[in-house]
Simulated scan of single mutants.
Amino acid sequence: MDVRQLEYFLAIVDHGGFNRAASALYLSQPSLSQAVRTLERDLGSSLFHRIGRRVVLTEAGTALIEPARAAVRSLETARASVAAVHELREGRLDIAAMPSQAVEPLTTMIRSFSGRYPGVSVNIRAAFTPRGVIDMVRTGAAELGLLAAPGPISPVSDKEVISHAAGEQRFVLLTPPDGPFAQDRAVACEELAGQRLIVGQRGTGMRAYVDGLRESGIGFTIAAETEHRVAILPLVLAGVGLAVVTESWRTTAERAGAHVLDIEPRTTLQIALVSRRAEQSPAARTFLACGLAAIDCS
């Protein structure tokens, strides 16, 4: 039994006979009759009494009407839902993102996408390292990923994942308003010697940067180490220490009252959107194009 046979059955019921139903369905009557005989054989029961040119529902036929209509409605609903997702009138898109990049450029990307496709919900999944983002995309936990890493990003070694360059972010220094450096100048990285720093977890670009400073001979004290990126700004404002972050935090930090200073020499993280090489959903394909275009224009 298939839904098409049920549609044929209901057409006979609604049009009052095989001839009218065949005309409405643009079928030949023999084809329609054959489809109904196949349905009856599958069900193990006759659905119509054939009286001359007239047909009358059997008890089994009468019992089939309601479930047949429910099945046809379910198929129509399924078709409409698939069409809505394909046309981006509704649906959901899962994106894995590292914390700093979830501030920017992800905000700009989502604003551009949601402005055009408000019916699609974007679900942001947390990942704390580039490998974590790539693994979530590779395994299907997310369709797209946004990550940052020092130097060129090349997840192409993973045959299932491909990267798309999405710009870069430089490192900046967060200080409290009464911090040790004037607000209107850049800070040389050597000037961080002797300072108390708030750092993130190992495996992130920000942590790699400060670890690199220590390896180059610049001594500092780790005042606090946190996996919670949102805790860094409050800790800075509370006077616990200074923090090296990416410039994605600049607007938020300045609005909160912190000072944001460039660090020299300029050092950056490379940003990338990553996606599976396999077929993507319409929402993922569109977000990828829309997001990359949005940051090119920003």
Rank of each mutant, 00 (worst) to 15 (best):
residue 83 A to K: 01
residue 83 A to T: 09
residue 184 D to T: 10
residue 70 A to R: 10
residue 186 A to M: 06
residue 158 D to V: 11
residue 115 G to K: 09
residue 266 R to Q: 13
residue 285 R to D: 05
residue 179 G to C: 04
residue 194 G to A: 13
residue 248 S to A: 12
residue 120 V to E: 08
residue 96 A to Y: 05
residue 26 Y to A: 15
residue 285 R to I: 05
residue 39 L to D: 00
residue 122 V to R: 01
residue 22 A to Y: 04
residue 67 P to F: 04
residue 68 A to C: 05
residue 207 R to F: 04
residue 291 G to S: 03
residue 255 R to F: 11
residue 49 H to Q: 02
residue 237 L to K: 05
residue 79 R to K: 15
residue 154 S to L: 12
residue 34 Q to N: 11
residue 173 L to I: 06
residue 251 T to Q: 12
residue 126 A to H: 15
residue 193 A to P: 00
residue 163 S to R: 06
residue 102 A to T: 02
residue 92 R to D: 00
residue 245 V to D: 00
residue 187 V to S: 00
residue 183 Q to P: 02
residue 111 R to F: 06
residue 134 I to A: 13
residue 97 A to L: 05
residue 138 R to D: 13
residue 60 A to N: 09
residue 27 L to D: 12
residue 183 Q to V: 13
residue 219 G to T: 15
residue 205 G to C: 09
residue 85 V to F: 00
residue 175 T to G: 12
residue 131 R to L: 11
residue 59 E to P: 00
residue 255 R to S: 14
residue 79 R to L: 14
residue 221 T to V: 13
residue 174 L to M: 09
residue 243 A to E: 03
residue 165 A to V: 11
residue 25 L to N: 06
residue 283 A to E: 04
residue 104 E to T: 06
residue 146 L to D: 05
residue 203 G to S: 01
residue 284 A to C: 13
residue 45 S to K: 07
residue 189 C to E: 15
residue 209 Y to F: 15
residue 199 V to M: 13
residue 163 S to Q: 05
residue 107 T to D: 14
residue 124 I to T: 06
residue 224 A to L: 12
residue 11 A to R: 01
residue 205 G to D: 07
residue 53 R to V: 06
residue 193 A to R: 06
residue 140 G to A: 08
residue 296 D to M: 14
residue 220 F to L: 03
residue 20 R to P: 06
residue 25 L to R: 01
residue 97 A to R: 01
residue 142 A to D: 03
residue 116 R to V: 10
residue 193 A to W: 02
residue 17 G to H: 04
residue 193 A to L: 11
